[in-house]
Each structure stands twice: as C-alpha cells, then as structure tokens.
Design a protein around this nucleic acid. Structure first.
Lengths: 345, 345
DNA sequence: CTGAAAGCGCTTACAG
DNA sequence: CTGAAAGCGCTTACAG
C-alpha cells in the first residue's frame, strides 16, 4: 500500500459512487445509514483520510488558523517570553479541539518577516500574540482584513491596531498588585517597563499603578518610570540604571512583566541589595519561573488556558460571520515573598 | 478587493497566459526575464499569494511537517515540560526557514488521540517529540510510513520504534554528570527516573550513571533507583518515597530530567533537608528554570537550537529521498550549585 | 437516497 | 519562450 487511498478507491470497494462516499464520510443525512456504515468501515480499514488540500480547495476555506508570535528583536534570541509559550500551548489545544489546524510562525521585527507572513494567507483567521508594536504591520494586516481574513489580537484594545482584541484587565491587575505593595511599603516607587503607545499592555498596567499610588496619596508616594521591553536583559539594564542614578534606591519596584522582574532580581542580588528587606519587587504574568526566583515573585496571573480558548472561540465566531467585540478577562493577584509579606507558597 | 486574487487575474492584467504566470512566480527559467518581472510586480501589487491548497494538490505534496508532541497523561495537564516547549520553538524556526509549514499537535495517551493524529496525514513528514512510550502508537505510525510519510524522532535510537532517531548522547551525559557528582561526593547514590524499555532516553542516562559509578568503584557506591515519569509531581512522589523508606538519605540524587529535579528540590526543602549540604542533586535538560531553583541546578544541556535544525534538516532530506541514519549530538555538563561545588553562575 | 458532472486554483507535460 | 489543456481529490448543485 504505497499510495494513499482516495475516495474513488473506497467507492469501488463499496460498490457506490464517489459522491456517495464523500457524503457518507461527511455524515450527510442524505445517505442511507447502511451505506454510510459500510463506507465508513472501509475507510477505517484503509486508514483513509480526506485530502485536506482537495477538500479545502473545493470548500474555499482552509480550516487553519495562523498564529503570529511577535518578538521584539532586541530580546535575547534564544528565549521567548515563557508567558507566550504558555499561550501557544493553550491556543494549540483550543484549535485542535475545534478541528482547526494551527500554523505557528514567529515574526521578528528585524528579520525579513514578509516571507514568514505568507502563512497568514493560508489561514481563515489570524491570532496575534506578543507584547509588540503592531503599527509597523498595519499595512499588511489591513490588506489581509480586506481580503476577508479575520484577526484576533491578545492584548489591550487599541483602536488603531488591526483586529479584535482580547486581553486581561491590565489596568486592574497593575492596580491590584500596586495596592498590595502599598499595603506593605511606604516610600519611593519605581515602575519598569515601556509605557508609550507602542506598548499598550504595559501602559495599562502603568496606569493602574499610577491610580493606586494616587488613591493612596495620604502618604505621599514618589515614582520614577524606566523603559524596558519584555526581556530579561531589559530588566537588567533598567535595574542597573536604577542603581546608578537613583540614590537612595526606591522602596518598591513594580515590573511590567515577570521576565523583566527576573532581570531586576538578578541585578539587585549581584549588587548586594536584599529583596524584600531593602526593596520590594513585583512582576506580571505569573510565568512558571516566578515561583522559583529567590525570593519567589509576587505577580499577577493571566489565565492562559482561558485566554487561548477565548481567542480561538472568538476567532471562529468571527469566521462564521458573527459579530465579536473586544473584551477583558480578569487578572488575579498572586502573592509570594518578594514583598516581604506572608505567603502560602 | 474582497476576494483574493488568482493567477488568472494576474494573467489578465499582464496580458499573458495563466501558465506563464505560474511559471514566472515559480522562477522558472523557461520564462522571459521581462515577462517574469512584470508578472511578479503585478503579483506584489495585488498582494497575491499562491493558493497552497491548489498548489499542493497539484504537486501531490503538502509542504508541511507535523509535529506530534507526546505527553504522559499523568503529568500535570497545565505544564508541558519546558524542554519540549523550547524544542518546539527551534523546530518552528527551522521549518519556517525552509519554507515548510509546521502543524503542531499535542498527543495525549489517554485522550482520543486518533482524532488528533489525523494531522499527520496532511504532512510530508512527522517529527515525534516527548519522553514517551511510542509503542502504543506503533500501528498507526507504521501505517503512515508504509504510505510514504517520513518520521523523525527525538530521543534515543530504539530499533522497534518507528522512524529515524536523532537525540543527544544521553549515555555520555548521564555519565558526565554522575562523574561530576562523584568528584565531590562519596556515599550512597539514588537515580530518579523510569528506566524501562518505555523510557529509552532515561534508560540511557541511567546506564551512563551506572557506568560512572562502576568505574569509580574504588570507593564502593551503593545505588537505588526510583521510577518517575517526566513531571514535577513524579519528582515529588519519588523524593517522598526516598524520605520515607531510605534512611539514611542518599548523599546524591541524580534525576533523569530537570523537571523531576525541581519536584525533588521542593520536597527536600519542605522536609528540611539541605541541598547541597546534606544531599547533592542534579538534573538533565538545562531548562530555563534550572538556573533559578534554590540552589541552582547542575544539569546536562541539550542544544535545542541545533536539535531542531537537525530534526528538520534530516526529515527534509528523507523526504527528498536521501538516506538518513540515527545519530547522537553531544550533551554538555552545566555546573551550578546543587552539588556544592564552585560555580560561575 | 444516489450518481454524473462541474469546478475549486494551481502545475506541468505537450505542442508549438 | 509561450499557450491550451489535463488533472490533482475533493464537494456540491443538479437531475433523477
């Protein structure tokens, strides 16, 4: 059995027409139950599977979702933010369970992404993932949308960005974690993470942070903000900057992402600064690593399973022609030891 | 521009036949350079992309690689071994750079994997990933092979398993890390990890471990072995067992995977056992987490970038009809602090 | 309930 | 160098 079987082979064996085979295999009600059983039984014996290329070509759809994972080019090449890896896992499962293939591709702002972008042409819909600046892709994405491709984006809703956005409540999460720190700390605060238009998720977290500080202003709280993209190295750079230029050190450092906090912790440790004794540090994302840093990191959890489900579910709805809208999922504060408070971990 | 452009649209605009458009876009030397340029220019303007379904159907190939990631059902559902997530990243990049799509699917031994397995029918080749027991899949995989699908497997070469295997030198890695421990420790040793036929990678590591012990037998070294699949929870169970039944505790614990070691460290810590003072612990894989445990974990690195490249490269060679054979890549000892030795990390 | 036939958008002998 | 035509394996009106 060198060549894969076709529906004609089955038709021949079952003594029916190829049309009937096709109907039987697609569980069409138009086919006699006996005939259907016979056809399906033969198909199973032959290990027959429908040729997706032919089927999709004929049906004029692809049964495929493209996942474009954007990474900032400046981040370490070797290490994708584990948070997105985790999202990748949940999106894979969510699409598989709905009978859709997932075409994964990594977009890198400085590579020849045009080539990789081709994937998106083979898909009924696209999921965008990454703490990235989508504006540079706007042209291509808009063009795809005009050609009927649906786009779902993980992150904060931004009117100018393409597609519908689903994200966690970054504002509330930033506020919650900052309030937690405020309940334990006084003094100067620092926020590490980009806060411009190009980083809407970080910006929302920053705004939550600012509001918490403001509402707490019985005690006056000073704040500095230092830019950092989503990468350990950026956290190291930012912490270095803090150590060099800001004396005394802030009493608490709120990081826009766990992976940044990891770099911050490393740098502080190397400089002999005690966490949480000298300074409290918190992150965002609840990556696996955050439970293992020393001290373990207080952070905000985004439910990746639920997020993957929501992205796929809404994308498929959009493909079916239903109306979908932006929405936010709740974020959960995870208290660990990096603020010096009690913890059950 | 609601509908995607076809080659006929371009043919019309360029004033040539559709055949010529197809040739021009495939860089056929049979087409006039002027004509080719004109066609390609129009294609770019229209944001035209070849319909892969049609193209693959005609060419009778798929330009797709299926990645089947096997997980043991007993492992925590939420957490895929980060080592394989890292492999996933490198395989994705390696296939993209060669113009192949990657269809990712997670196989779970206890789920209805038949459904997910269908993916493999759409692929020119399959990459198998996971510390899994492939024997239960043998029937399906053999059938695919007979139908002309090429299979590449990450792991130790096992004659009965389907496909060509590429892996790291688990034996040497196991031996190296054990010798390192032996250079610092005397006394009783324990190995945690499955060592049966169903876990050939772990078994090879175990054999390296045994050989190191044997060659060192100037000092007599006692050894126990405890089963554990590749999961943190399995490490916790195994360490618990060690604590309950083995007094005194071994002086060194060699774990078959980092993720097992993470569970072991956690359990020892909870029991008040000091690492490395009371007992040395080492792992295997060099997952990101291993640098962040307390103490940081001495382990063996498998080069995932190189591994992904090798898997894809060899798979494509096999698809082209070239002969390929099993082979091993070197594994590198990474010394950290969990054995109490000096470290530069 | 079933079959004969058209056609999805390409690639590629074949003929010029 | 170019074009007309066949055909990849399906799905689905259309006719019975």
């Amino acid at each position: 059995m060198k060549n894969k079987a076709t529906s004609f082979d089955i038709a021949h064996m079952a003594g029916v027409s190829q049309s009937t085979v096709s109907r039987a295999l697609n569980d069409s009600p138009l086919v006699n139950i006996e005939t259907r059983r016979k056809v399906q039984e033969i198909a199973r014996q032959l290990n027959y599977k429908v040729d997706k290329n032919a089927s999709n070509l004929r049906r004029q759809r692809s049964s495929t979702i493209a996942l474009l994972l954007f990474e900032d080019p400046t981040s370490d090449d070797s290490m994708i933010n584990p948070f997105f890896l985790s999202m990748l896992g949940s999106i894979t499962k969510a699409s598989a369970s709905r009978g859709y293939d997932l075409l994964v591709s990594f977009q890198n702002l400085d590579s020849d992404w045009h080539a990789e972008f081709e994937d998106s042409h083979k898909a009924d819909g696209i999921i965008l993932l990454g703490y990235g600046d989508y504006r540079s892709y706007e042209g291509k994405l808009t063009q795809l949308q005009e050609q009927g491709t649906h786009i779902m984006r993980w992150g904060a809703p931004v009117a100018e960005y393409p597609g519908i956005s689903i994200g966690c409540d970054n504002f509330q999460g930033g506020k919650d974690v900052t309030e937690h720190v405020l309940s334990l700390r006084q003094g100067n605060f620092a926020f590490i993470g980009d806060v411009g238009d190009k980083a809407p998720e970080f910006q929302a977290r920053y705004e939550g942070y600012l509001q918490a500080l403001e509402q707490h202003s019985g005690t006056s709280v000073a704040s500095v903000q230092i830019d950092a993209i989503s990468a350990e190295s950026a956290g190291i750079d930012a912490a270095q900057q803090l150590l060099e230029r800001h004396t005394p050190l802030p009493d608490a450092i709120v990081c826009a992402a766990d992976i940044i906090a990891v770099g911050v912790l490393k740098t502080l440790k190397a400089a002999g600064v005690q966490v949480p004794a000298d300074v409290a540090v918190v992150g965002f994302d609840n990556i696996q690593l955050s439970a293992f840093t020393t001290p373990s990191l207080t952070t905000v959890q985004q439910n990746t399973i639920q997020a993957g489900e929501a992205l796929v579910e809404n994308l498929l709805r959009a493909i079916e022609g239903e109306q979908t809208t932006d929405y936010l999922m709740p974020a959960t504060l995870i208290v660990r030891q990096s603020c010096g408070c009690e913890s059950n971990e």
